[in-house]
Nucleic acid binder design. Structure first.
Lengths: 218, 218
DNA sequence: CGGAATCCTCTTCGATACTG
DNA sequence: CAGTATCGAAGAGGATTCCG
């Protein structure tokens, strides 16, 4: 942890990569963009990361000022990690990367790991500002038992964990069924008609949502 | 090169990082965003990269469809690498990263390597669209003998190598003096008055350029 | 001479086991 | 649950050599 490898270049990209360019680091940031996470949460989400690596990365990120650890007061008293403002400032970078990577999802997922929390970045990456122009709406999801929602307003998108107050749409599905729709293996309409995916809200809202989360040039 | 390590996550960020997340890769992309480069050019710019690594990265990038190698017809007959459309699509990601990394440049550069071509990404990262609103201008540079220019139009910025046709401003400096100004160690006005940096163009243009390339929140 | 492949050493990664 | 410790495997760095 102490002595770090550096590109030794006077360039903002190189210096940025000196901090977030190591293996797993940006994926940790991705997870923390969804909110505070415990060590265990990260370890589960980042399937295959060595425990020593996760600890080292967290230490590095903390000393670089991107994250901080917080303890809830007793009796809950759990330790969590969360992004600092500096860490959250990586959101545009992560979003840009996610957008670039979208078409790589066309390749079959096979045995790839997946977490419902990642739907946050997926929504961000797929968000189409043109389609969202002039729209104010709240789209709620409950994928694999994980409730979260997206608020579209003023052409921008904000995501939240938990149950939405007054959603225009609420979509419930299992991990597997949801992914099959995302992959294109299963048609959304059919999935709804066959009851695999449940939807509360108008058909109009559903249609609009589909458009809002259809990325441009793709 | 053949068998690759993968995060095995069904997430566009993870899949993107499977391709561009390895050491040096995004720096190669940074260099190629400036235009086609030869093996030797990259090797010089990416100070410290192993010859085997550079070759391996280029091969991986090529098979991933991000770059292609081109040969000029004889007699020049040199082999160069250039980005494909898919590779150029990384520009927003690289720009976002560069923008995030800007404030890391505050740390002294010490013995850090530097190449005048990197001014392209620096300009992109520092570009302030608000200040550029309604402006049409061409700003030319010749840093360390490397001529390049930035065209601001319709609130957007485009960079080019070579000599600008009708620049509103032409700024010439050595690597070292230019960096001292960028670092803040040397004041631009003083550098001009003392003749270290030469400027052709109106003082008005100079002022406007300074504003256009002053990043927001910084 | 530029564009790599080879070799060797060193660091980092990955996986598991272990501890406060 | 939150990390350390450990160790074989893979990757990085640097020099040298090979090929055209």
């Amino acid at each position: 942890m102490g002595k770090k490898r550096s590109y030794q270049q006077y360039c903002s990209i190189a210096r940025a990569l000196d901090i977030v360019g190591e293996r797993w680091t940006l994926l940790i940031v991705r997870d923390l963009l969804g909110g505070p996470r415990r060590y265990k949460d990260l370890q589960e989400s980042l399937d295959g990361i060595g425990s020593n690596l996760l600890a080292a990365r967290l230490k590095d990120l903390e000393s670089a000022g991107l994250i901080e650890s917080i303890k809830q007061p007793p009796p809950s008293s759990v330790k969590s990690y969360q992004l600092t403002a500096r860490g959250r400032a990586l959101e545009p970078t992560v979003a840009a990367l996610a957008h670039w990577g979208l078409e790589l999802l066309a390749a079959p997922r096979q045995k790839d790991h997946w977490q419902p929390q990642w739907n946050h970045v997926a929504l961000k990456a797929r968000f189409n500002p043109q389609e969202a122009a002039g729209l104010s709406a709240t789209y709620a999801f409950e994928i694999g038992g994980y409730p979260h929602y997206a608020v579209v307003k003023d052409g921008a998108l904000a995501n939240f964990e938990g149950t939405a107050p007054n959603p225009d749409l609420l979509l419930k599905a299992s991990d597997e069924d949801f992914l099959r729709v995302v992959e294109g293996e299963l048609n959304l309409k059919e999935a709804i008609q066959s009851g695999l995916i449940s939807v509360e809200g108008s058909g109009e809202s559903l249609l609009r949502m589909a458009k809002v989360f259809t990325p441009k040039h793709s």
